[in-house]
Design a protein around this nucleic acid. Structure first.
Lengths: 344, 344
DNA sequence: ACGTTCTTCTAGACCGTTCTAGTCCGATAC
DNA sequence: GTATCGGACTAGAACGGTCTAGAAGAACGT
């Protein structure tokens, strides 16, 4: 707790060197775990570090070397899926000497770019971007300067790695399940963002998987994509739109859990029961979906595992790997009581 | 997007100074917005900064001055209440030139102390700690060295500010509501942590409020405090304990929403209906509690507002305030259908 | 004309670390 | 005996900013 010289000054590497009777250069070599130091000198310096309770100043190390800091960009901290991811990241990084810091990036590409710049200005050694809304060319430009892994966006990419769930397969799991229950009028609610009509984004992959699965079941004629926002409010609006229709779907693939929750609320308000009138399936398998009162059928994409994997790839890249890697994790369907056979 | 000199080198304050035809000292004065610069010089330097797309390196600034970085310590990122708080913090800080970074501190005092040190090592200008498990003496020691605000812990304190909900009043709102419905056997589930049996912690304030309200209603004989962990699993265990009793409470103050959700799940598994057999009230009014299928009665402590307030106090403290301030925010009760009149 | 004061500007030390370009010394080769 | 080599160690520059101390020049009073 001290880490202070008598004058109230912070203990520096010079204090350590003086205490061990060596040069600051040697103390620095030991601190970095570099080669070219005798066992005896190493022992003396390490002893001095513990004696003085020395902690190196990351900011100063960053001036020439590394800061041992990893930045994690998230858009909306409140999205419970991010929590799972971040836990995975933190778990993998623990004990490596690096520290993860989470930067709230906001919802827009511009605000996220600002946060990414803020991370660069702080000399962070590597970046993990979770579901960024930034355009591909900008991502490549940033990744050319700093090791980077993007989660929730599909590859390929030149300068960075990606970790994503197999979104097409996830949608197919939902459609197969619903068709198996006897549904034919199955709608899909997507996240619509004019800024990023990009086939590397999960919402579009999920749409592709949905359309493909409908075709496979011979339900081309029932394909119905509703463009909304994946949020509670977006779900409410989608529910209102469905309620207003003459011919309603009997089942809805909500695209995401948050959207599904809004949908459940909106349908209930419109007097449409779930799963009675309309079955609803979500995506992310957040803790809320498992509550018995909610019991939402949802695709699990093992966020914890994705976070671990992303951190692993990043550390690897910081260690010098250049070739980019693109991982897909396999989803599975948690079947609960928000989906059932259609009534008619 | 460039921020690069022709050699691929980063643009520095020296490049700016050369481009504007002034000394680096003058450029630095302009950058810091300091006094003693003529309007003409200021204009020229600012022009040079935009011409070159200059962005100062926060790490380098931190060596002598400030890093314009604020650290926010959280224990469990998945707790949805933190999301509200963090949004409030981010909102208040936006546009001030400071950037917030969130450090996952983990559940134990030791892991949180490590993260706090990591923030200190990165020369962060101020710290916001959310519900830390660190002991009071350690908090004072840290706050003596860096501006600090603690959220979710009651004052007074010597060197730091606190922002907390009025937890005693919150508990009283719940008890008053339940007694008003006709309940008498009302139990309270607290968070039990041997490390911090400290009357500045919310769980203990809520207990005091609960006991006091029960007394006020002449229900001293029914006071019943169950020591558990405020988590989904803790709620499950509390439910199992209640189910096993011969004489069960007719209503439970779960202490926190996460705990309430575990309780609802556990009671349902034990065949006890809510609110039929047992009414349940939560605390935090998280988004999940408002879902119609959940509909949990819960105390709202306006986390967004608390976050804004904390950031406000911190900026003030960074600007030089020394006297410590201790704010309490007023809670209100969101009444929903998880609480109703007892059956017998 | 001269001293004083005020404003504006700048040279250069400084922050705590890393890294480059050495020095020193003992061992080995001829 | 001298040249060469390699391992252990170190002086001091460098990183990109801030900050101190002082210089230069303008404005003012006498």
């Amino acid at each position: 707790m001290t880490t202070k010289a008598s004058g109230g000054r912070r203990i520096t590497i010079r204090d350590v060197a003086a205490h061990a009777g060596v040069s600051t250069s040697s103390a620095s070599l030991v601190l970095r775990g570099a080669a070219g130091v005798s066992a005896e000198t190493r022992r003396r310096v390490e002893q001095a570090m513990t004696d003085l309770d020395y902690r190196p100043l990351a900011a100063a190390r960053g001036m020439r070397g590394k800061t041992f800091t990893i930045g994690v960009l998230v858009s909306d901290i409140r999205n419970p899926f991010f929590g799972l991811l971040l836990d995975g990241v933190a778990e993998r990084i623990a004990g490596t000497g690096y520290e993860p810091f989470i930067g709230p990036g906001g919802a827009t590409a511009a605000s996220q770019m600002r946060m990414i710049q803020a991370m660069r200005d702080r000399q962070m050694d590597g970046l993990i971007l979770i579901g960024p809304h930034v355009a591909a060319t900008e991502l490549e430009a940033i990744a050319a300067e700093v090791p980077m892994v993007v989660v929730g966006r599909h590859g390929p990419a030149e300068n960075f790695d990606t970790v994503a769930g197999d979104d097409e397969q996830g949608s197919q799991l939902i459609v197969d399940h619903l068709v198996g229950l006897g549904h034919r009028r199955i709608s899909y609610v997507t996240h619509w963002d004019p800024e990023s009509a990009d086939d590397r984004r999960p919402e579009n992959r999920r749409e592709q998987g949905y359309v493909e699965a409908m075709r496979r079941h011979g339900l081309d004629g029932f394909v119905d994509v509703v463009r909304e926002e994946w949020s509670h409010d977006g779900g409410l609006r989608a529910a209102a739109a469905f309620a207003a229709r003459a011919k309603r779907p009997t089942a809805v693939h909500a695209g995401a859990d948050v959207s599904a929750f809004g949908l459940l609320t909106g349908l209930a308000e419109a007097g449409l029961s779930t799963p009675g009138a309309i079955s609803v399936a979500g995506y992310d398998n957040t803790a809320t979906s498992a509550l018995p009162r909610v019991s939402l059928t949802s695709v699990d994409q093992s966020g914890h595992e994705m976070g671990r994997l992303a951190a692993d790839l990043l550390l690897d890249r910081i260690d010098g790997r250049r070739r980019s890697v693109h991982e897909l994790t396999a989803p599975w369907l948690a079947v609960r009581s928000s989906t059932a056979a259609p009534e008619d």
